[in-house]
C-alpha cells in the first residue's frame, strides 16, 4: 500500500504543474542545480562529526560509557543490551542501524529486546547530525537549548518505547 504513496504524489505534482502551465523540465533542472552547492557546503561538517564518532567508537569510550550507565538505564526500565544503541543513536544513523541489525542477529527481531530496539530507533533521530547540518549554513555559534531538549525528549521516548513493547 505505502509503495504507491510517492509515485501517486509525483503524478499529481506533474499534472498539477502542467495545469499551471509550468515548464517542468526547466524548473526541475533549476532546483536540482542547488544540490551540488548544498552538499559541498555541508560536507566539512558531516566529515567532522563522522570522524569524531568513529574515534569515539574505536577507542571504546562508548562501550565503557554504556557499561557505566547500564544501572541507571535499568532503573528506568531499559534493558542493558540496548545501552550502547541508545548512546550512539544521537550521533550516527548508519552506525545505529548496524547495531540494530546486530541486536536482531543476537536476540531475534521478534524478541522483547529486538522490538524495543526497533521502536527506540523508529522514534528517535540522529540529533547531533541534524543539529550540525541544520545550523551549518547559518551564522549561529550558540545553539542554546536545542540539543539538550532533543536529547531529553529522546530519552523519555526510549523509556516509553520499552514500556510500550512490554504491553503491546
Amino acid at each position: 500500500m505505502s509503495v504507491y504513496i510517492l509515485p501517486v504524489l509525483f503524478i499529481v505534482l506533474f499534472i498539477y504543474g502542467f495545469s499551471k502551465k509550468i515548464n517542468t523540465y526547466d524548473t526541475f533542472v533549476k532546483g536540482a542545480k542547488g544540490a551540488i552547492s548544498l552538499v559541498v557546503s555541508i560536507f566539512p561538517f558531516i566529515a567532522c562529526i563522522m570522524v569524531a564518532v568513529a574515534l569515539l567508537r574505536v577507542s571504546g569510550i562508548t562501550e565503557f560509557l554504556a557499561k557505566c550507565l547500564a544501572p541507571v538505564f535499568n532503573f528506568l526500565g531499559i534493558p542493558t543490551e540496548l545501552c550502547e544503541l541508545i548512546l550512539l543513536r544521537p550521533f550516527t544513523g548508519s552506525g545505529s542501524y548496524a547495531l540494530l541489525n546486530d541486536v536482531y542477529v543476537a536476540y531475534g527481531p521478534d524478541s522483547y529486546i529486538g522490538r524495543c530496539a526497533s521502536v527506540i530507533l523508529g522514534c528517535s533521530e540522529t540529533i547531533f547530525y541534524v543539529a550540525t547540518v541544520y545550523f551549518s549554513q547559518t551564522k549561529v555559534k550558540k545553539l542554546g537549548y536545542a540539543i539538550p531538549c532533543a536529547l531529553i525528549a529522546s530519552m523519555v521516548g526510549a523509556i516509553v518505547a520499552c514500556l510500550l513493547c512490554r504491553i503491546m
Binding site: 547559518t138 551564522k139 550558540k142 536545542a146
Partner: peptide, 21 residues
C-alpha cells in the same frame, strides 16, 4: 537566521522538531 550568532527560538524549535523524528 538574524545573524546575531545566537540561535533564535524558531530556529531551535525547527531543529528540535527535526531531531525528535
Amino acid at each position: 537566521d538574524d545573524k546575531s550568532g545566537v540561535a533564535t527560538y524558531s530556529m531551535m524549535m525547527l531543529v528540535i522538531v527535526n531531531a525528535t523524528s
